[in-house]
Write a protein that binds this DNA or RNA. Sequence first.
DNA 1: GCTTGTTTAAAACAGTTGTTTAAATGAGCG
DNA 2: CGCTCATTTAAACAACTGTTTTAAACAAGC
Lengths: 246, 246
Amino acid sequence: MVDLAGSGIGEEPMSGGDDARSRLLAAAGSVFARRGFDRATVREICREAKVNVASVGYYFGDKMGLYRQVIRQIHELRERKFPAPAEGDTDPARMLHSIIRTLLSRMMACDSRGWESQLMMREMMQPTAIFGELVQESFRPLFERLVEIFRLVVTAQSVEQDGEIATGDALVQRHELEQFALSVVGQCLYYRIGAGVVQILVPEESRQQHYDIDSLSRHIAGVMLAAAESGRSLRYKLEHFDRRPE
Amino acid sequence: MVDLAGSGIGEEPMSGGDDARSRLLAAAGSVFARRGFDRATVREICREAKVNVASVGYYFGDKMGLYRQVIRQIHELRERKFPAPAEGDTDPARMLHSIIRTLLSRMMACDSRGWESQLMMREMMQPTAIFGELVQESFRPLFERLVEIFRLVVTAQSVEQDGEIATGDALVQRHELEQFALSVVGQCLYYRIGAGVVQILVPEESRQQHYDIDSLSRHIAGVMLAAAESGRSLRYKLEHFDRRPE
DNA sequence: GCTTGTTTAAAACAGTTGTTTAAATGAGCG
DNA sequence: CGCTCATTTAAACAACTGTTTTAAACAAGC
């Protein structure tokens, strides 16, 4: 008997491997992403992996165990392929742009590593048991980092404007920085999952020219930098908007 | 025999009704949104609607016909409940804010009318046959309107800055306006479908205080206005970012 | 009454689902 | 060889799926 569902995957070659377990894992990722957890059938997965249907029970306990393992594997592969840019860049603007590029690249990757975007989306809409830990492991670090970057951007801008930081009185509230961070993620995600919408709304010529990763990351970085740097002046401008417009 | 799947729904009272068909439609919406098209079973729907399983075949042809009708109904209800703000506001900034509010309200509506966001998401990730017409009917008008609003914002800002419009040479390219529009939709959508993520990342206190529709619509409007108004200055700033940072 | 058409009801259908069983295979080893 | 062990196989399982069939209930018109 081989180890069952709960085990890690640290011991095997990780992505090569021609044994049944590896083939099963690879096929499952493909099928789960394409069909979703429900529509995906263990029979289809096993057919694609050229293993017997009983293998999923044998190696992973059940269908859910296989799914769980697939998500873990994909997450690791993705972080290896598109590592988060190293900290230490002195220019927060460039740092932001760099992170957005990474985010978009990860999401847009349509090869085998593009699965996670889809699986993650499915988890958002129909959370399974593993959703919580997934967010903590995968989203939290990036989120915190974005928050800190925006703090730098706002601070730098304020120094530029006022000549000196008004100490004591916080330049910007934490929740504003968080919302900036969430806006970044939201836009990146949309260009992935909303690709079908974009495909219909934007003619192909323009799409191929302006909707690649480079253009989009510049666009998103531009939007968010402008917002963060405009700072308080804009906030005041918006405050006299009625709570319920019209 | 009653009319089958293809028919419209213009003839009945539209939302009242205690007949089997209405109950079926109502129950189906609830169950489809909660479970998704696949996990939802016609038996569960019929149990909730207190009708026999054969009724779905009788009234809607099959499960897919029922789904199709549910989406149509929800779409109409939503547009009735949260109508798009009337055009004619002279201030494009306030107009933008108003539209964003509408968008967010529609998406966040967690009562019976909140289904469409989820159903729409499902359509994005796993388009059925009705996805195309849905985008053309539902997204296109809003999209075009956003584009025009951003054109006004950019133009107004430019007048303010330069004193006069540089005619002939377009202030901003079409695709930039489109990307602004898409960024708006992306952010709004994320605060809906990413609600689960936000719930984990942001402590409850802050969430209740700063993540209501009012706060979020002001935030998104602020971000996009800052971006649109910063205009060319920012664009140049970003252009010297390398194509592949690092 | 009877006939007509519409609506409901229970049961059956054919197919697929995830999962399990029990037998077969094949390598490693004393 | 015989024995052990992990692995693989084909078949069976029970539960559930969307859909259809068949018949009964019902109302309206004559």
